[in-house]
Design a binder for these strands. Structure first.
Length: 110
DNA sequence: CCCGTGACTTCCG
DNA sequence: ACGGAAGCCACGG
């Protein structure tokens, strides 16, 4: 049977679990999946998530709170607008209050 | 099986 | 603080 990679599925699931006004990092998701070194693969999974509107990929940023994947969105600053719409303060493609908006997938289950 | 790619992360200068 | 390079894992061809 054709089962898609669990890694992608998990990443997609976690991405959907990100609450409104919160953001997380690829490494955090990867670490939650048990592969802290697979942060890049998480980003790749988000690339596949691009086809799923149920996945708020704009809430997923890198470890520094930098909107590295903003170029992958439809618009140039679409990701930034979405985050700002949720109360995020972005400057130079970087979230100023990143720590304030940060959300850990493991913390949700904790 | 080998190679290339990628929305990351960490280390070094 | 900033920039460049290396390492890492997973998918597709």
């Amino acid at each position: 049977m054709s089962e898609k990679s669990d890694f992608f599925i998990k990443v997609h699931e976690i991405a959907r679990l990100i609450p409104y006004g919160r953001v997380t990092s690829y490494g955090a998701i990867a670490r939650y999946l048990g592969s802290p070194q697979s942060a890049r693969t998480v980003g790749w999974a988000m690339n596949a998530a691009h086809s799923d509107e149920s996945i708020p990929a704009h809430r997923v940023v890198n470890r520094k709170g930098l909107l590295t994947g903003k170029f992958h969105f439809d618009g140039t600053n679409l990701m930034q607008q979405l985050l700002e719409s949720e109360g995020a303060v972005i400057k130079n493609n970087k979230i100023q209050n990143f720590e304030e908006m940060y959300w850990d997938p493991g913390k949700n289950l904790l």
